[in-house]
């Protein structure tokens, strides 16, 4: 009797999901890669093949170079701030587990992550306001002169880094907390018997065991930071009243090239560069964490 292979049912069951994934995830990536080699204005039926001309032009485009520089500074700064701060906060919250209000600490740290992006950015815009913002009032107590946070090219980058870190830390804390809860108590007890302090136990037991979690958090934070757009847009928007210095980031530049300048092929080339950067950096992170854990 002829029997149907056992793998057929799972494959058939997965097919709709795989089909959807292919349509909404894989196809756009392939299409973006293809479009980056064409000159297309989104409207015209003409779509001439231009090879790597878009990439060559990108290499000398001052706005793109500024965008890539700004985005890289923001992404690395957010990762550099988020990982240690989130780890420290997670350790503190973990040490209070079982005590009263421990849930409140977790919720309050996670809250910025669930707040809608645009209202959060609007609130930060008010905090950074040069004339009415509480930040300038605060630094005024220490005799520091008021700063043009949203207008100075360097300070506006700092503002974006603060805003993005504030949003990223909550999620990172949650993931680190899960990791910390999975560290066996027996290891801490053994360390304590060997005379290790709490800090030493954290440093030599928890941190090495959390490396896979750190890898995950750093990859996710880096990728999301490379994709920032709304924060930069909101901090510089409201052109009727109080505009700010527009920090040019990659996604914003892509949107401008696609829908303002109607240069879809060129914007696709930018997207390909972003994809390559993120892939290379993710690969580097994997390598970094893997090598160290082996050592």
């Amino acid at each position: 009797m002829r029997t149907t292979p056992k793998w057929l049912f799972p494959v058939l069951a997965l097919l709709p999901i795989l089909g959807l994934y292919g349509c909404i995830r894989v196809y756009p990536i392939i299409e973006t890669l293809r479009l980056s080699l064409f000159q297309w204005n989104i409207i015209s039926r003409r779509k001439p093949f231009v090879g790597f001309a878009n990439f060559i032009e990108l290499a000398s485009d001052p706005l793109f170079l500024e965008a890539i520089f700004n985005t890289t500074i923001i992404a690395f700064s957010v990762v550099a701030i988020t990982i240690p701060v989130a780890l420290a906060l997670a350790a503190l919250i973990n040490s209070r587990q079982g005590l009263r209000r421990s849930g409140v600490y977790e919720a309050s740290v996670f809250l910025p992550h669930v707040v809608s992006l645009v209202p959060a950015a609007m609130a930060w815009k008010w905090i950074f306001d040069a004339r009415l913002g509480p930040l300038n009032a605060l630094i005024g107590f220490f005799g520091i002169p008021a700063q043009s946070w949203l207008f100075d090219p360097v300070l506006s980058l700092v503002c974006l880094i603060v805003l993005c870190s504030w949003q990223a830390i909550g999620y990172a804390v949650l993931i680190f907390l899960v990791g910390l809860k999975n560290v066996p108590d027996a290891l801490y007890e053994a360390a304590r018997l060997d005379g290790a302090s709490s800090l030493q136990a954290f440093r030599y037991i928890a941190v090495p065991l959390l490396k896979p979690v750190m890898l995950y958090v750093s990859v996710i934070t880096l990728i999301s930071s490379y994709n920032i757009y709304a924060q930069a847009f909101v901090l510089a928007s409201d052109v009727q009243g109080a505009p700010g210095h527009l920090v040019r980031v990659l996604v914003l530049d892509m949107l401008e090239n696609s829908f303002r300048n109607y240069r879809v092929g060129y914007a696709a080339a930018e997207a390909v560069v972003l994809l390559v950067i993120v892939l290379v950096l993710t690969g580097a992170q994997f390598r970094l964490f893997r090598d160290r854990s082996r050592a």
């Binding site: 040069a130 004339r131 043009s148 949203l150 207008f151 052109v239 009727q240 009243g241 109080a242 505009p243 210095h245």
Partner: peptide, 10 residues
């Protein structure tokens, strides 16, 4: 100055 309120709102 750039940091002053601007445009219609100002």
């Amino acid at each position: 100055t750039p940091e002053m309120k601007a445009d219609a709102e100002a």
